[in-house]
Design a protein around this nucleic acid. Structure first.
Lengths: 340, 340
DNA sequence: GTGAAAGCGCTAACAC
DNA sequence: GTGTTAGCGCTTTCAC
């Protein structure tokens, strides 16, 4: 029995043991070119005897490619983003790529650091759902970048949801539910297209004589206290609210506090949330929400990235996916007719 | 203006432009050895003129190290694991490592594929919170592996929570809440130490004359229907339940359905969940739970991995972190005395 | 069919 | 102090 196994077997060891040249070993490894049947056998034996596994690092260097995609999100503690990363990893995996994940947590030096991996050839591309850095920082990169829900400008394809429809649908549901004074919690994240829903939502309601109370919310990434703070402040400051529209978490905080204060949902208060993550189904009553198709968003981002890398097909600059209303018990059932 | 920029500048280009040797460039890059001030200046100028960035792949090959740690979890759609990955990424980042994430989603070929990255030198180590493969598959690897909440055997350090205490505390709360017939939903995941809570929980309650109804639940990773199915079945099959103990999601499903059926929490039904993710605070009423210290678990896993890699300090085979009771409004407030 | 050799971009040892 | 050189482990011409 051998005493010490010198680190790990290399292709040279295999070649030596099989009594062939490294080139031949490489050929059987990659299934390229011709190699005689019994030469192949010998090599395969040597490979299994040595428990040889090719060193991916060396391959990477040669190919100048790692098969790794960086996925930047503000925070995995946010269900939307953890779900996005999940689906992205799955979609990338199908195409033979792996996902390197980064919580940017509002920290631009982290973001920069991950972005730099592009230049250093550590990742073949970056899918970003977060940016606190200057747009130029992204635009000046030579690497492949795909953006989720944020417009960077030409050269960086973006994939997003149709938030304008989202805002419109939410407003329509509020109207059909005869709400008169609606709380609208905004400011979930900077720079994202998701914010587009806000203006339409307010416009449609205002046009129809509904009072909209606007509430800006800080987005603290380390705990979710800001959700509670916003909800508390809203409860304290305004009465007569008969409808709320906000992202999942702040909306649920508000609903929680309102119920605690004895208000009934949906009788006294209608609630519509944006995103519709799992949490909106577990709560009682189940909440009505505007849902983004996260799986499809992720797949589209992944596919777009692959196209960018392969460079065969051209990729669209902008891909907008539709959103969907899921009615729960926090509003009365309505039929949409897109009237508003 | 140049027409075509030949791929990317290499260290040789920098050396040439600065009129020095590559070794010297490498020295200023890494801050090793002596280099005269004006040589350094020239090199730095060349670097910035060429917008040179070192190719990490080449470095990796030389060092035989990528600075990447694979993190395997069953599914990022589970809040416990998305939170774990979040904290792990943050902890690893602090030590100069990045996280490659993998949803194993019960698919052993995926798991194997990621595990193989160890042998192929694509990752420096693997932290795993998931295994469907045979234990031997892990034990036979030469690479660094740290396990979350699962015992593989000697050589693979594990980090977990004190689930026995967790089960005990939950039982004590049930007793102090005077529950007489408790529903216990089990079977959240295979192979994990977390299951240790089940036996103690039942033992303590039985010893004290409390009826425990056991309910095994399937764990389907692609949707969360199994939670609802289990909850529905429990509602249908047994009445007189005045307490529930289960993981966050199934417990909340049950609570949701019970409330829908007109039962009041905590008056008619006490609920205690295991894990205590955000969702348990957003629901109304806020739920009482046994919380694992995910951040600490993640940091411990990351630190253990780093120690393994650096090979200086020995690492403990088993590290068990304590759990904590967080009382919400789904049970009556109690004081623990560890009497049971 | 197969071996030898060059080279991917970098680091480190070794001369000068 | 600095240039030269020999690898890291692999792939891929290019002869034979």
């Amino acid at each position: 029995m051998r005493q010490v196994r010198r680190s790990m077997a290399s292709i040279r060891d295999v070649a030596q043991r099989a009594g062939v040249g490294v080139g031949t070993v490489s050929r059987v490894l990659n299934g390229n070119g011709y190699v005689a049947e019994d030469t192949r056998k010998k090599i395969e034996t040597a490979i299994s005897e040595l428990e040889y596994t090719p060193n991916e690092l060396a391959r990477n260097l040669f190919r100048n490619k790692t098969g790794l995609i960086g996925v930047l999100v503000p925070d995995l503690d946010h269900p939307f983003f953890s779900s996005f990363v999940r689906e992205t990893e799955i979609a990338l995996y199908k195409k033979g790529y792996k996902a390197m994940v980064c919580n940017t947590i509002g920290n631009s030096s982290r973001e920069m650091d991950y972005l730099n991996m592009l230049d250093r050839n550590m990742v073949d591309g970056i899918i970003t759902g977060s940016h606190t850095l200057h747009v130029e920082e992204y635009l000046k990169r030579k690497g492949k970048i795909v953006s989720l829900d944020q417009e960077f400008g030409p050269g960086i394809p973006m994939v997003g949801s149709d938030h304008v429809s989202g805002g419109k649908i939410a407003a329509e549901v509020m109207l059909k539910n005869k709400c008169r004074k609606v709380l609208h919690i905004t400011g979930v994240a900077p720079n994202v297209a998701a914010n587009d829903r806000h203006a339409v939502f307010e416009a449609v309601l205002s046009e129809n004589g509904v009072d909209v109370v606007d509430m800006m919310m800080a987005w603290n990434l380390f705990d979710h206290q800001s959700y509670w703070d916003a909800a508390k402040e809203a409860i304290r400051k305004c009465d007569g609210i008969d409808g709320v529209f906000a992202a999942d978490e702040p909306a649920l905080c508000y609903m929680h506090l309102a119920m605690k204060a004895g208000r009934r949902v949906p009788e006294d208060l209608k609630v519509i949330t944006y995103d519709g993550m799992d949490i909106t189904k577990l709560c009682y009553p189940e909440v009505t929400c505007i849902c983004q198709n996260i799986k499809f968003l992720a797949e589209t981002c992944a596919d777009t990235m692959i196209k960018l890398i392969e460079g065969k097909e051209p990729v669209p600059q902008k891909q907008i996916l539709s959103v969907e209303l899921r009615q729960g018990q926090s509003t009365l059932p309505v039929e949409l007719d897109g009237k508003y």
